[in-house]
Amino acid sequence: MVKAGRAAATWRAYREVSRPGSPGLVARLRALPRMLRAGMRGDYPGLTKGKLAMLGMAVVYIVSPIDVVPDFLLGIGVVDDFGVFLWLMTALLGESGRYVDWETEGVHRTIPGRASRR
């Protein structure tokens, strides 16, 4: 069940990146540093402190030697790390696409349901 959810999320991310008119993979990757800086400053309303915390925790989990499933269990030990990695990449690619759109439309546009800080 969990594997199917990860596969579905990965497929949605692929479809979003390859959709005509959508920011491409290179544009999304180049936007990541700008998006993270804008999110940390509070300028980009799509990247809240909670989302930033989740992304940070995912990075820490991936590089941490402590795992839910120990890596020495060959065959399944890296599955949890890979699942977190897939979630992280899907989240970053999706949000960076929204960030590129937000940048293109103008910094003063707000995300529906959120007030702009400007």
Rank of each mutant, 00 (worst) to 15 (best):
V2E: 14
K3D: 15
G5T: 06
A7R: 12
A8T: 06
A8G: 06
R12F: 14
A13N: 03
A13E: 08
Y14E: 01
Y14M: 10
R15G: 09
V17A: 07
S18F: 14
G21S: 09
S22T: 06
S22L: 03
P23D: 07
G24T: 12
L25D: 01
V26H: 12
V26E: 12
A31K: 05
L32F: 15
L32S: 01
L32A: 11
L32G: 04
R34P: 00
L36F: 04
L36Q: 02
L36I: 15
R37K: 14
R37D: 12
M40C: 13
M40W: 13
G42Y: 10
D43C: 02
D43G: 04
Y44L: 07
Y44P: 08
Y44C: 07
P45T: 13
P45Q: 12
G46Y: 11
G46D: 09
L47A: 02
T48D: 09
K49D: 03
K49N: 06
G50A: 07
K51S: 05
K51L: 11
L52A: 08
L52H: 09
A53D: 11
A53R: 13
A53I: 02
M54T: 12
M54A: 14
L55W: 08
A58L: 11
V59Q: 11
V59L: 15
V60Q: 07
V60Y: 14
Y61K: 02
Y61Q: 03
I62A: 01
I62Y: 07
V63Q: 10
V63W: 05
V63R: 12
S64C: 03
P65G: 02
P65C: 02
I66K: 06
D67N: 14
V69H: 07
V69Y: 05
P70G: 02
D71L: 13
F72G: 03
F72K: 08
L74M: 06
L74R: 11
G75A: 04
G75D: 04
G75R: 05
I76K: 02
I76E: 00
G77M: 09
G77S: 06
V79G: 02
D80C: 00
D80L: 00
D81W: 00
F82S: 08
F82T: 10
G83F: 10
V84G: 06
V84A: 13
F85V: 10
L86P: 00
L86V: 13
L86G: 03
L86H: 08
W87I: 10
M89Y: 06
T90A: 15
A91W: 12
L92H: 00
L93M: 15
L93V: 07
G94K: 08
G94I: 03
S96P: 15
G97N: 09
R98V: 14
V100H: 05
W102S: 10
W102N: 11
E103K: 11
E105V: 03
G106D: 01
G106M: 09
V107P: 05
V107H: 10
H108Q: 15
H108N: 12
I111T: 09
I111Y: 12
R114M: 07
A115Q: 10
A115S: 12
S116K: 09
S116I: 02
R118S: 14
